[in-house]
Amino acid sequence: MNTNFKSWPILLALGLTSVPLVTMYAYMIIDTVTVSPPGSFIPNGISFGSWSFLWEAPAPGRPSIWSVTLNTFIFACVSTLMALSVSLTGGYALSRLHLPFRGFFLGGLIVLHAFPTITLIIAIFLILQMVGLYDTLAGVILVKAALEIPFGVWIMKGFYDTVPWEIEMAGLTDGATRFTVWRKLVLPQVQPGITALGIFAFLSGWSEFILPQVLAPGADAQVLGVYLQSLISDDTSMDFAKFKSVGVFYAIPVILIYILFNKHLMNIYGGGTKG
């Protein structure tokens, strides 16, 4: 962008620091479709053997990859939909509606937004056991959605805040009820927010590991993260090709979403929740 400065020293520095990541990405793919002689990383043949988990019957005691994938999909989608709908109404209430204790709710929202939810997992584990939702997909979905809410409400409130008041005022004088104004006039204006939050929540649900691992460890409710991790920790042969094939399979939706929506993603991750 700047012609006054040379860019090759920068390219060199960036390139060198990026070597580890690029190597890992490259071999992530290469190892799943090739075989290499022991002690070498130069492939000497093509093989799709490590992908056999897709069509072979699962090992005894292990759920099938397809049921796990379905679980993951349900987990990610339902928790996203829940978090999204709750954030859409909650964010609107905080941005635009009259509420008793409004200031209190807003303050609470910011506190929760920054609050490290993972510290609550012990109590959540015990609460789920007490209400009987332990080891069910429904329970862990509920928890996941709930933990996304402070962030979601915060983001959506930000989007609602940018909708001109006059649009709502015009809607009211045009004869629409407050609810119709929200549904027909305001929601279409926050569409980018809905997309961004939806993508974020889906990715976060799709990638989730600790919550399902702790709150729904049974085979019936297993998700891909837990599946892959148990594959790695139970396997003594360290068959990286197999792990990576499962991993690539696991990452497909993430990569697709990144390709389709990367502008949205950069924005919402700039708001920052993880690490």
Binding site: I167, A176, Q189
Partner: peptide, 28 residues
């Protein structure tokens, strides 16, 4: 407001951005 039958033109016009001119006018 909804039952008062007033027409308002706002400073920034407050047109509904996702609707075309026809839909905007037809909304009430």
């Amino acid at each position: 407001s909804q039952q008062r039958n007033v027409g308002v033109v706002f400073q920034n016009y407050a047109l509904y951005p996702h609707m075309n001119a026809y839909e905007n006018i037809a909304f009430p």
